[in-house]
Nucleic acid binder design. Sequence first.
DNA 1: ACCATTGTACGACGATCATCGTACATCTGC
DNA 2: GCAGATGTACGATGATCGTCGTACAATGGT
Lengths: 107, 107
Amino acid sequence: MTATATQVTEDIAHPKRDQIELGAVLHALSDPVRLRIVATLIADGEHTCGGFDVPVTKSTCTHHFKILREAGVIHQRPQGTARVNTLRRDDLEARFPGLLDKILQSA
Amino acid sequence: MTATATQVTEDIAHPKRDQIELGAVLHALSDPVRLRIVATLIADGEHTCGGFDVPVTKSTCTHHFKILREAGVIHQRPQGTARVNTLRRDDLEARFPGLLDKILQSA
DNA sequence: ACCATTGTACGACGATCATCGTACATCTGC
DNA sequence: GCAGATGTACGATGATCGTCGTACAATGGT
């Protein structure tokens, strides 16, 4: 198909803090690929999607980033053709104090 | 079919402590029914399978208890036709210190 | 304007999940 | 021995999941 309209790339939808649900967070972090992504963000602060050492293809990565974003675990902002991922540490800490640290310690 | 052998009911297989995996625990607790079961065990100590107030049928309950047991979150011992469920608190604390408490605080 | 890079949408596939009803085994009280 | 209680195995269903390949859009460098 050909392009018909300019995509507004800075509007990546994220759930608000009070929309972040425990079940979705636990589900998001129960997958080894997503847990590795989150552990890398803890260590490095931020990464673009292509900057992770994960054993799956690009399209599967996109799938995993979508789940992490929709669960409210990560924040994504566009930077050229890339998307910069960061952990929503403050939001997660406010919602579930200490939980993320405990999960990462257990990993 | 008719009964052909006496079932050995005390041998309910549970994973050993070092076989308990973080991903399986997080997955087990990402479901609202299972989270409610675990929260009830925290509060009451132990319950038989039928002693939980959950919005699903008996066979679905059996399915959920199976997932919790196989993830190493609960221990089940037979008592007549019933099974008494308890949290494997010590095992989970040894494996993932503080994690269960944080999850339950967040629930 | 072209090219490379980045990431996504879409559709497909096989596996897993959560649900349920049914039939049955086991245990215990009577 | 029978009845009731408890819980499971089995099979079924529809939904979700994690995987991938392909085609494409958007961006920025040249």
